[in-house]
C-alpha cells in the first residue's frame, strides 16, 4: 500500500431546516505517500468540506452518511474527538487560507510554534524553543529570535503564513492539507509562499493536498490533480496528462478558462520562479 489517505465513496450532507442537502456525494480520492495532490473545482463544489472531513472539524450541522476515510490504514470517520487527537492530529496538519485570522492574536508567535512541538514531539521548553528557531529559519524568516517574541499583529500576512507553514511542517506530518493557502495574499507574496511550500514538501516525506481554484497554480506544483464538481471527483490525472488530454467535459471547460494564463507558464514550469525575493517584514 503506497497511499497515505484513501477516501472511498464518501457521502456527506448538511442539514438545513430539517432537510438534508448532499454536499459530497460519493467522493473517491487517494493520496500517495509524499505526493502533492491538487484538488480543483469551482466555488461550492465541496473542496473545503472534504478538507474539513479529513481534518475532523466538520460543522455541527453536517454528517457523514456513508463512506470511509482511511488514514494510514484506519478509518478516521469512526473516531470520536479524543481518539482523533491521539491518532490523527500529529499526523495530519493544515495550512490555512487566511493567515490574518489563523494565529492567536494575544500569544507570542514563538509560543504558538513551541506549543505544538511540546504537545506532539515531547520536547521540553528549551528544546522546543531551539527547534522553533530552526523551523522559522527554514521558512526563510530572518531573525527568527526576534520574530518569536512578536505578536501576530506585528507581522505582515506573508510572514504570518510562513509561521503557519512552519507550524504545519513542525511535527513532520504524513499529510498536510492546504486549502487555498495563498488566496488571501498579494500576488508577489503568493509566489514566494507557493515556492516555499513546494520546497519544504520536497525536503520532507509529507504528502500535500493542495486545494485551489487555479489550475495554473496547480499545474506548477502538483504531481496529480483531482477535479471536483458538485460533490464528486470527476477526474484524477497526473498534472501532465490532465493538460494534454483532459477526459471530462468539466475539466475541459475549466482548462479553457485558465488556458490563457496557463500557456504562458507551461514551458517554464516549477523552476522558473524568482528566487527568494525581498522579505516582507512588517
Amino acid at each position: 500500500m503506497n497511499s497515505i489517505l484513501n477516501i472511498d465513496d464518501l457521502h456527506l450532507e448538511v442539514r438545513r431546516d430539517h432537510i438534508a442537502n448532499p454536499v459530497l456525494s460519493g467522493v473517491d480520492l487517494s493520496i500517495k505517500i509524499g505526493e502533492i495532490h491538487g484538488l480543483v473545482g469551482n466555488s461550492g463544489a465541496g473542496k473545503s468540506m472534504l478538507a474539513k472531513a479529513i481534518l475532523g472539524i466538520l460543522p455541527a450541522a453536517t454528517r457523514i452518511s456513508s463512506g470511509v476515510i482511511n488514514f494510514d490504514g484506519k478509518d478516521i470517520t469512526r473516531l470520536d474527538s479524543k481518539q482523533r487527537r491521539h491518532l490523527a492530529s500529529r499526523h495530519i496538519a493544515m495550512i490555512p487560507q487566511d493567515p490574518m485570522t489563523s494565529l492567536n492574536p494575544v500569544r507570542r508567535v514563538g509560543k504558538q510554534v513551541c506549543d505544538v512541538l511540546q504537545l506532539h514531539m515531547g520536547m521540553d521548553r528549551g528544546k522546543a524553543q531551539q527547534e522553533t528557531q530552526r523551523l522559522l529559519d527554514n521558512v526563510q524568516i530572518r531573525e527568527p529570535k526576534t520574530v518569536m517574541r512578536m505578536y501576530p499583529f506585528e507581522l505582515s500576512g506573508g510572514m504570518r503564513q510562513r509561521v503557519l507553514i512552519a507550524i504545519a511542517f513542525s511535527c513532520k506530518p504524513e499529510l498536510i492539507i492546504a486549502d487555498e493557502p495563498t488566496t488571501a495574499l498579494d500576488v508577489t507574496v503568493q509566489r514566494q509562499i507557493l515556492q516555499l511550500i513546494k520546497q519544504l514538501q520536497m525536503n520532507s516525506a509529507t504528502a500535500l493536498l493542495f486545494i485551489s481554484h487555479d489550475l495554473g497554480v496547480v499545474a506548477k506544483i502538483c504531481d496529480r490533480v483531482s477535479i471536483m464538481q458538485s460533490g464528486r471527483i470527476v477526474e484524477c490525472q497526473t498534472a501532465e496528462s490532465l493538460f494534454d488530454e483532459p477526459q471530462h467535459a468539466y475539466t475541459q471547460s475549466l482548462l479553457e478558462t485558465t488556458s490563457k494564463y496557463y500557456r504562458f507558464d507551461r514551458g517554464t514550469n516549477t523552476h522558473s520562479e524568482t528566487p527568494a525575493e525581498h522579505q516582507d517584514h512588517a
Partner: peptide, 8 residues
C-alpha cells in the same frame, strides 16, 4: 479551529 486540528 487550527488549535483543534493541532490536537489540543
Amino acid at each position: 479551529m487550527l488549535s483543534e486540528i493541532k490536537g489540543f
